[in-house]
Design a protein around this nucleic acid. Sequence first.
DNA 1: TATTTCACTTTCCTTTAGGAAAGTACTATA
DNA 2: TATAGTACTTTCCTAAAGGAAAGTGAAATA
Lengths: 116, 116
Amino acid sequence: MAKKKGYLSCLDSVKPVRDAIDVINGKWKLPIIISVTTGNERFTDIQESIPGITPKVLAKELKDLEQHKLIKRVVIDDYPVKILYRPEPYATTLTPIIEALKDWGLTHRKKIFEKE
Amino acid sequence: MAKKKGYLSCLDSVKPVRDAIDVINGKWKLPIIISVTTGNERFTDIQESIPGITPKVLAKELKDLEQHKLIKRVVIDDYPVKILYRPEPYATTLTPIIEALKDWGLTHRKKIFEKE
DNA sequence: TATTTCACTTTCCTTTAGGAAAGTACTATA
DNA sequence: TATAGTACTTTCCTAAAGGAAAGTGAAATA
């Protein structure tokens, strides 16, 4: 019983970890975050900055990222209207995690390919 | 050109980040890692410790985790042979990342559900 | 001899992520 | 009037993840 409880309380950390991973998971989330944070604002600019992405996927991922408050869709009411995508300051809270994942991923690749 | 180079060098971090995420991604990787590190060793014990997992998925994920050197498949040559799954010390290098993801995931959930 | 346990594998099916190509509604420009 | 740009949407398709259920082969137990 004590063992089972211990296991279940460990499982409690699975959900938030999954929540976090889901935000940056998928083929295009990180490239889009990077593109927007490096200054690309227009839909077509973002699209052209990421080779291979289709407008369908970009539209869907931008909505996702907006729901997660990482970017903001800004409508500029000129004639014609402009639509800009801008990074939210909140997006920077992801940076240390992405760095940690990057570092681990780099050493892991070495670990896997080192002589057995 | 400087801008494009900047973008491309940012993209260089996408691959290692993906490498890292792939290791812990999917529905069952974390529960299995947790189950093994908390002491479950036998296939059926691990299976029973994770509600809902099927033997097919467990077998596949255990192979994956072994390839990534996070766990070890140990064959004990008694009669009958026993097969044990044990965590590798290397698996602990994941802990700070999982903790960071958990913390970010928890605050993120609050952020998303706070009044707009 | 029959049943059970262990560690899986096999087959079939559904769901989800993502790609390719075309279309759309509006505006601007030649 | 015709073409081009902007920001998408729609439809159709494929591949991969994962689930359900049954099967397998060897050894242990009743």
